[in-house]
């Protein structure tokens, strides 16, 4: 309906989109802007320009060890979530079996059930049946909240696949491991990669599960940021947040370039 839109409506659309764009982006802009402030306090607009807060972040043991924990957590979550999710997605998309659509809904349910409630439940279980929250507990929590994304991206990749490829490989004499190694997994590749990007991003950014599953010796970047926001934030929080925004932008751009965001969202 691009043609035939009244001129006034077009103008209004542009104004509306611009307003929403500012609204959506301004929190990120403000964080980035505050990070280069020379002042001791968090103010916007920044007073004076300086990169000193980035220097502070890069020399702060607390931030560096939180960053290390966050990256480790995200990477382990990626490996576990992609492995389990790909396997489940293959079962759910390539095979027809009783209860299949029920199981599909089950696997996607962490997407719509609030992660807060799930995080409390997990905390209670880990406190009662293990030695309280831990790095492992965080991995478990993050795998649950990221599993639906892997299942969605891998299923989308498999939906594009010629449904007879697997049968064709059987007709040509492929054994079960040859079918998976040579035919099915290569078809899942793009979906697995897209899923991995999502999983990394979600795990790296999550604060809800992390705050509930807070173990004494495990602190991730979002937990660290949340704590400083509760007390007295200085521009170093803005600097570390800006670095995280940068990582997200890179991930989103790669996702868009390689898979097309419109297709996988």
């Amino acid at each position: 309906m691009v043609g035939g839109v009244p001129y006034g409506v077009k103008l209004l659309s542009v104004v509306l989109v611009a307003a929403i764009a500012i609204f959506m982006l301004v929190p990120l802009m403000v964080v980035i802007g505050s990070s280069v402030s020379a002042s001791e306090f968090l103010v916007f607009p920044p007073r004076g320009l300086s990169l000193r807060w980035y220097g502070e972040v890069l020399q702060s043991d607390a931030y560096l060890s939180a960053a290390k924990t966050s990256v480790q957590l995200a990477l382990v979550t990626v490996v576990v979530s992609v492995a389990i999710g790909t396997s489940a997605a293959i079962a759910l998309t390539m095979f027809r079996f009783p209860g299949g659509s029920f199981l599909s809904a089950l696997f996607l349910s962490p997407l719509i059930l609030p992660s807060l409630i799930f995080a409390i439940g997990l905390l209670m279980v880990f406190s009662a049946y293990a030695d309280g929250p831990s790095f492992t507990g965080l991995v478990v929590g993050h795998v649950v909240i990221t599993l639906p994304y892997v299942i969605r991206t891998v299923s989308a990749a498999l939906a594009d696949m010629d449904p007879h490829l697997d049968e064709a490989s059987r007709m040509m004499g492929a054994s079960w491991w040859q079918r998976y190694l040579l035919v099915i997994l290569p078809q899942c590749r793009t979906g697995m990669a897209a899923g991995a990007f999502f999983v990394f991003n979600i795990s790296f950014d999550d604060a809800v599960v992390a705050l509930f599953m807070r173990a004494p010796d495990v602190e991730t970047l979002p937990m660290r940021i949340y704590s400083s926001l509760e007390f007295s934030p200085d521009p170093s929080v803005a600097a570390v947040s800006t670095i995280m925004i940068g990582i997200t932008i890179v991930l989103v751009l790669v996702l868009n370039r390689v898979f097309g965001l419109a297709r996988i969202m």
Partner: peptide, 16 residues
């Protein structure tokens, strides 16, 4: 892009 950014960071922006 905002959706993929950590909720903590977006909230931080709103605090400022």
């Amino acid at each position: 892009l905002p959706l993929m950014t950590s909720v903590v960071i977006r909230t931080f922006g709103w605090l400022v």
